[in-house]
Amino acid sequence: MLCRAAGTVLGAVVFAGLAALLPRPAGLIALVAVCGALVPVATRHFAALTAVVTVLVLALIMAGGEPQASVSRIGETLLACVLVLVVGHLPTPGKRGGGVRARLTAAGGAAHTYLLHVLGESGDHAERWALRREAYRALAEARTAIALAAAELPALARHTEGTDAVAEALERLVDTTTACAVHLDGTGRLTARHLGRLREALAELERRGVRVPLPATA
């Protein structure tokens, strides 16, 4: 959202400056052509794309013979961006960070439940794979929340600092648990190597501030 707002404001300001300098309608038509050529390049960054599209739309409005509508649109766009930032983001700078950590906590809980089921050597394969799906689903939701926080709120990244590393460590734990489950299905027991890999994954998580204990029998 911040990228969209920043791009929109930048585009409106740039267009306002260009509109005061460019001849009409030839200059505006040239501006439309330039913006159209820039769209494929601007797709690499959402704020840049928003800025280019904003200039393009405003230029089309003014080139169509509605300068007052273009000026009105600039004002409405700037006002809308201010309202979105003030109402949607500034009062709650830590809200998104809390949401990310809640997702990570849920992913850690799902990974732990899956791990305990596998190490319990239960014969219920249907339940095991249901827990596996839940662990990966919760992990995917956590990664999505982290990516959204980084993309939409880069200025507030401190609230989610380190969460991506925790998600990677959780993913390694779930992958290792799955490898153990497959080995159990084939041989009926875990080797010292498998247990060692599990302990390494858990130790890495603990270094990241997340404790997922092994059962006493492991």
Rank of each mutant, 00 (worst) to 15 (best):
L2D: 11
T8M: 14
T8A: 15
L10S: 12
A12I: 05
A12V: 07
F15I: 05
F15D: 03
G17S: 12
G17I: 08
R24W: 13
R24Q: 14
R24F: 13
P25F: 06
L31Q: 00
V32S: 12
V32I: 14
C35L: 03
C35F: 05
L38K: 11
L38S: 09
P40Y: 07
T43W: 09
A47C: 11
L49M: 11
L49W: 07
A51F: 14
V55K: 09
V55R: 10
L58C: 02
A59M: 08
M62H: 14
G64W: 08
Q68E: 01
Q68S: 10
V71D: 15
S72I: 11
I74L: 07
I74W: 10
I74T: 03
T77Y: 07
T77D: 10
V82N: 09
V82M: 10
L83T: 05
V86P: 01
L90Y: 13
K95T: 06
G99A: 07
A102L: 14
G109I: 09
A110S: 15
A110C: 07
H117E: 13
D124T: 04
A126R: 15
A126F: 15
R128G: 07
R133W: 08
E134V: 02
E134D: 08
A135D: 06
Y136I: 00
Y136F: 08
Y136H: 02
Y136G: 02
L139I: 05
R143L: 12
A150I: 08
E152S: 06
L153E: 09
A157Y: 09
T160N: 04
E161P: 01
A167I: 02
A169H: 06
L170M: 00
E171A: 01
L173G: 03
V174W: 14
T176Q: 15
T177W: 10
T177I: 08
A179D: 14
T187Q: 04
L190I: 00
T191E: 02
R199K: 03
E200C: 00
A201F: 03
A203E: 02
A203I: 01
E206Y: 01
R207I: 02
R208M: 02
V210D: 00
R211S: 00
T217L: 03
